[in-house]
Design a binder for these strands. Structure first.
Lengths: 208, 208
DNA sequence: CGGCATCCTCTTTGATACTG
DNA sequence: CAGTATCAAAGAGGATGCCG
């Protein structure tokens, strides 16, 4: 992209990450950690393969991304954020908070990937009972199950299944999000088709 | 811009403000307040006039910008942020903080406008003596003098001149910034050509 | 398969000129 | 002052091919 050529931190930041797809690539790496090229494509529906290759090179040249050759038997290239790249987290959080209201209104045919749930959940959920024992919620929606772990005052969201989750939520992304973010009443959510199994007290522990 | 079409707050935020120039237009309106078309062009060196018109229409349609017809005798159109637009401030602050280190390294022929000083100064300066009487610093660099007002624990930066500033700084943008952000020693700054007149104790009151 | 590179078409941008 | 009109150049998107 053409540089704005301004002596201004905002403009120079945008010179680096203002191009189409760049910040979404950073989002993927922040949520997913070290990722293969193909996994990145999975999380960026619609990206042209040449653009993904271009952007990864640019981000690498800018020092935000590094590529590592995974040792055998995996023997594949892994892309990961550098420390400088990881420092973009506050930018993505601010964007996510600002964009929240846009997502909550009716949605049509948007693409969805389960791991994107980490954005609103880590932004808005809190552990209100940090001294209580750890609890987990399994969320079944989208392309893979997600695990919400509430422990020691922090809320962690990552792909995976729990052995014995305290609560299991099964439904559409907006149902699950509505309930967890306390924007949809419990009974409304169930009426709209959300399946809730387990100990619902963990909900009030994390809801905003 | 083409929508990313993702059920993700970050992607939907970028659908609205991810286009080239959009966030810089928001920056201008945040710093300058209600502005005329021509003033916006002044603060966005290099923007094509058709693009500025396009972006303003898009931002207006998205509900971030409103246009007001100023009453006579001014009788001109003023563009201003809506409340929703003003809520982008944390996004720009995060971008500005991330981009700070990029600006501090040697710079060549970048364009500069004095009012952009508000970005780093309001991000990093603090009033460490909120109970002391108000003080002002006049900064003379770039296209217009800027006023830094320290009062009641807050630091305000805006265009203008003070009647009796406590301190006047005259020099290049990087000299002034280096001194105010405490990244350049006082004596180094003077040796490189920065002119410092007045009561330098206000410096330690605001420096990070 | 994973990780691209090439080719082609379409859209967006930038530069400049012009207008109510 | 606040734009619109025009046109060349750059970038994005989609399909496909290549190579370990």
């Amino acid at each position: 992209m053409r540089s704005y050529n301004e002596y201004c931190a905002i403009a120079q930041a945008l010179d680096v990450v203002g191009e189409r797809w760049s910040l979404l690539i950073v989002r993927e790496l922040l949520i997913q950690g070290p990722s293969r090229y193909t996994d990145l494509r999975q999380g960026l529906p619609g990206i042209a393969t040449n653009l993904l290759a271009d952007r990864l090179r640019e981000l690498e040249a800018a020092g935000l991304v590094k590529r590592e050759e995974a040792p055998p038997p995996v023997a594949t290239t892994l892309f990961d954020l550098t420390e400088r790249g990881r420092q973009l987290e506050p930018v993505l959080q601010a964007l996510g908070r600002w964009g929240g209201p846009l997502v909550r209104r009716p949605i049509g045919d948007n693409e969805f990937r389960s791991h994107w749930l980490a954005v609103p959940l880590e932004a808005h959920l809190k552990d209100h009972r940090p001294d209580a024992p750890a609890q987990t919620i399994e969320v079944r929606t989208g392309d893979q199950p997600m695990l919400v772990e509430v422990k020691h005052g922090s809320v962690d969201v990552r792909p995976g299944k729990a052995d014995h989750p305290d609560l299991v939520l099964t439904g559409t992304a907006s149902q699950v999000l509505g309930l967890l973010l306390n924007e949809l009443e419990f009974n409304d959510a169930k009426q709209r088709g959300l399946k809730v199994e387990g100990d619902t007290r963990v909900l009030t522990r994390v809801q905003p």
